[in-house]
Amino acid sequence: MSGNSSWMNSLVNRMATSKFFNYLAGHVLVPYWAWRTPVYAQHGGPRATIPPGDNMQRMMNLILPLKDKTAVGRAKAALAIASNLDEIYAGLDNVGTVHFARFVIIENNMCMISSYDGDFSNYIRDFVAQLGTVFDSVVALIEGGDDMIPTKENIDAFINWVHDRDVYQIPDTATDLLRYGTIGHSAAKADGPDDLRLMPRALILQLHKNPNSLLGSGYRGYPGLSVAQIRHKMGLGW
């Protein structure tokens, strides 16, 4: 790479990873391009697809900001779970499609993380039918949750409310980033042309809209199996 501009070239190469450029990118370029080429904030949770394997062990990651951001608020949330273990266990057993579920407090957010089979709305609807009052006591501690109570009588709105708080899942198939979400571009056009080099920007702009995200659909040790299939095959009953 001889030539007069080669020092300039290596300077620019170094610049790409410099603090200055990082600052410029994050604080100026991202807002500019977010304005110039807006994208839709994609919904949280997995996309609807037909193949059965896509509908097993789907991941839910709810981020629910606590109203009270002190230790008292966090303790209230912890108690709401701890004092309702029977309700939660029986409810999840009766929903029948949940592999794992856990409640985690992270940075004053109540996080509900689970892996479930089938459709998201059905899962939430069945769960609310089983333990609406527990949901009510948790939702009462969450910012923006008051309008949802009692959840059993606001079931459609509550399912939407929960869906809106399930984090965005970055697609495993990278080109989906180019296809979906760009306003007035590409998705409508049947076949390109695209600019694959803009893929990183597509990701950046989507993460600008969706600050929380699940990176890909996540690893599964035994993909394609439902809770009941595992219980059935392992002789645990269902």
């Binding site: 929903v95 029948g96 499609t97 059905n122 069945d126 039918a129």
Partner: peptide, 11 residues
């Protein structure tokens, strides 16, 4: 018949 989603029975 038994169904996996007991909570949804007859719904």
């Amino acid at each position: 018949a038994a169904i996996v989603q007991r909570a949804a029975r007859h719904t």
